[in-house]
Simulated scan of single mutants.
Amino acid sequence: MKVFSLSGPSGTGKSTSALVFAHKIGVEAIIDDGLLIVNGMKVAGVSAKFEKNTITAVRRAIFTEEAHREEVMKALTTNNVQSILLIGTSDKMTKNIAQRLELGPIATFYYVEDIRTQKEIQKARFIRQTQGKHVMPIPYRQVEQNFFKRLVQKGKDIFTPKREKIGETTIVRPDFQQEYIEIEKQVYVQLLSFCCNQQDIVQKVEHIQFTLGEQAKATISLQLKMPIDYVLPRRLHQLQEAVQQSFFQHFGYELDAINLFVHCALPKKK
């Protein structure tokens, strides 16, 4: 069996990118938080994300329970798995998993920085810290029947560049994820409005629409001050940069898009 490792700190988006990355390097199976996933479907195991505390979650993820370990090892044989990607928080953890499941030595070690941009990692950390949400790289229907009392949401369908579906994701909030800071949407809107109003070209901020999901976007409708005796595109670009800098300073990640719409220009208020 060809064994690969993908490691990185918690909350950096390893599970989010796992299906695409496994497909890219030609790997059919994934071990993630105690689950064996083959070709995008859970075939064995119990997820560590549904343990009551972090200690039991870690023990679940590294297969310390004998029955859990034997179930996954049997499924590896039954499904004739020839290549597998082990996901963990460190090389030590993935080596531990490989040893417990008797997979043999790990051929190649990859890290989250190899498969995700710094911008994507920053956003993933922010979502973990402010929403407490975790991603499982398995379909919603394989989760919700047994864990319907917890936050469980459909994630997204995962496709290859050729638009071939290779799997789905599900979003959950584990019981052990007790500490997170929830930020109301209005906080983002107020920050964006304040930042725009600090710019000397802005007469009034008319409307702001903010979305935080797969893409973090701000759409801002403005009134400008007259006279416009400057190069408008340059000043609007500077405004976008100021908004981006302020947003990063306060929340630790960058917006994917800042769309500015100039509704009109009015004389400066006396």
Rank of each mutant, 00 (worst) to 15 (best):
Q203A: 07
F247E: 10
G252Q: 09
A218W: 04
Q238H: 11
S221K: 15
I258M: 01
Q209C: 06
F210C: 03
F251I: 06
I208K: 00
I258Q: 01
A242C: 05
Q199T: 05
Q240R: 11
D229G: 07
H207G: 01
E241K: 02
T219I: 08
N197A: 11
F248T: 08
D200Q: 08
V243G: 03
E254Y: 10
A242M: 14
K217E: 14
L232E: 04
S246H: 09
N197P: 02
E241G: 03
V243I: 15
Q209S: 09
F210L: 01
L212W: 07
V243T: 06
H237N: 15
Q199Y: 06
Q223G: 07
T211E: 14
G213W: 10
I258D: 06
L232K: 12
Q244F: 08
Q203C: 04
L255S: 01
L222M: 10
Q245M: 06
Q203K: 14
Q209W: 05
N259C: 09
F247K: 00
I201T: 08
F261I: 13
Q238C: 11
R235S: 11
K204A: 08
N259V: 13
N197G: 13
Y253D: 06
K204V: 04
Q245C: 05
L224Q: 00
M226G: 05
K204P: 00
L212P: 13
Q245F: 15
H237Y: 12
H207K: 08
F248Y: 11
Q240F: 04
S246L: 13
K217Y: 02
P227Y: 05
M226S: 05
F247R: 00
Q203F: 07
P233R: 06
L222P: 00
I220N: 00
R234I: 13
Q198T: 02
F247V: 03
A216C: 13
L212T: 02
L260D: 02
G213D: 10
V231A: 14
T219R: 04
F248Q: 08
Q240E: 12
L212F: 09
D256I: 08
Y230S: 02
I208W: 01
D200H: 10
T219L: 05
S221E: 03
D256T: 03
T211N: 14
L224D: 00
R235N: 12
L260H: 01
I258W: 01
A218L: 02
A257V: 13
R234L: 10
D200P: 15
H250L: 14
K217I: 15
L236N: 04
Q249F: 12
